[in-house]
Amino acid sequence: MKLRHTASQAPEKVEIQMTPMIDIVFQLLIFFLFSFKIVTQEGDFNIRMPVAGPASSTSLQTDLPIKVRLTADGDGNLASIRMDDAVLPNFTALHEKVMSRVGTNAGPDATENNEAELDCDYNLKYRNVIGAVTAISGYVTPDGRIVKLIQKIKLSPPKKPEA
């Protein structure tokens, strides 16, 4: 059967209703606008701290751990930094001291063989611990590359202040 267009039927312009679509699109836009928040990138310092026992004592240790002592004042701010009985003025000095210590150990496993233990006052603000971990674990070169120094870092057990 042959279909024929009738001459009397003029072609109608099909108009799409845009209003509902624009409504939804704006709703979506508002949703994403409100749920958007600027988050800073976060990174981790990985530390392995098994419970003190025979396992840790039998592990291969070529060097004695570097002991870093951080003391706090009454407000929890950093009062002093000590490493190997040397008093250091700031984390930059700590970093330089660690550099001189690790730098003398030749070999590809130098960063793996070194270990550091942070002994901190109970009330010390945590930001100082991260500062010390940053100073010990490495540094960023001017071209943005991270050079690792000591990867084995552990925290000493908590010592509650005497009342």
């Binding site: 530390i47 701290m49 603000k125 925290l155 010592k159 202040p161």
Partner: peptide, 23 residues
């Protein structure tokens, strides 16, 4: 307080956790 962080680590150790990521 660092001491409280250490206590959290200690409690994790007591329950068998050994790997920590300080963020």
């Amino acid at each position: 307080k660092t001491g409280v962080v250490q206590e959290v680590i200690q409690k994790c150790q007591e329950n068998g956790f050994e790997n920590f990521a300080l963020r």
